[in-house]
């Protein structure tokens, strides 16, 4: 256990960001943009600036924790997860600071915009956590549909199930979450 760990100076000198991430970033820039736009479809949440900053934050988070992705679906699943984390973390920080709807950064405004339609994000997140303990598949679908803005067909393709199944799962999850939040 005590043997010293050899180090690799080249690797230590640079922040390690595998080169495939750059490729991936190029490849999926449009993907991220689409997701961000989807999240911002509500009228109250502003424009391109927010979409861009959300996207960048999502990318940085994913890059710093990359496990490598097997394919686009895996990537989209990871992104859905990252988007959820970003929004919820900001919502939490915002609540802690007592920021009102127009205060602070672009992301604050974004959170306000999203919450205008989703309700309290922190509570929604807690409800999702609870749902995840009972039914992780349902949470995955909700994340893809709402946090990665995939269409029902795309959710179905990403998870390898039928669109009907996706719709059923979504409907049930929506009812369960709303019941819990109301």
């Amino acid at each position: 256990m005590s043997s010293p760990i050899p180090s690799d100076p080249a690797r230590d000198a640079r922040p390690s960001r595998p080169s495939h991430l750059d490729e991936l970033f190029d490849l999926t820039y449009a993907e991220l943009h689409r997701i961000a736009r989807g999240l911002l479809r509500s009228p109250t949440s502003g424009g391109t600036h927010q979409a861009t900053s959300l996207m960048h934050e999502a990318f940085v988070r994913m890059a710093s924790r990359s496990e490598g992705w097997n394919d686009r679906e895996h990537f989209v699943r990871s992104i859905a997860c990252a988007m959820r984390r970003i929004l919820v973390d900001h919502a939490r920080a915002r609540a802690a600071r007592g920021v009102r709807r127009d205060g602070g950064s672009e992301l604050d405004a974004l959170v306000a915009g999203v919450e205008a339609v989703s309700g309290d994000l922190v509570r929604l997140d807690e409800a999702l956590e609870a749902l995840g303990r009972l039914d992780p598949d349902a949470v995955r679908i909700v994340e893809l549909r709402y946090f990665a803005s995939l269409s029902v067909e795309e959710c179905a393709a990403a998870l390898g199930i039928s669109t009907r199944q996706v719709e059923r799962e979504l409907q049930f999850a929506r009812g369960w979450l709303r019941g819990r939040l109301s």
Binding site: S42, V114, S118, G119, E154, L181
Partner: peptide, 20 residues
């Protein structure tokens, strides 16, 4: 759950509308 689904609006109801 059924009651929640019947009530108009509510969380997740309108976020990312059913574009598909």
């Amino acid at each position: 759950i059924l009651a929640a689904l019947q009530a108009p609006g509510g969380p997740l109801g309108t976020l990312a509308p059913e574009s598909s």
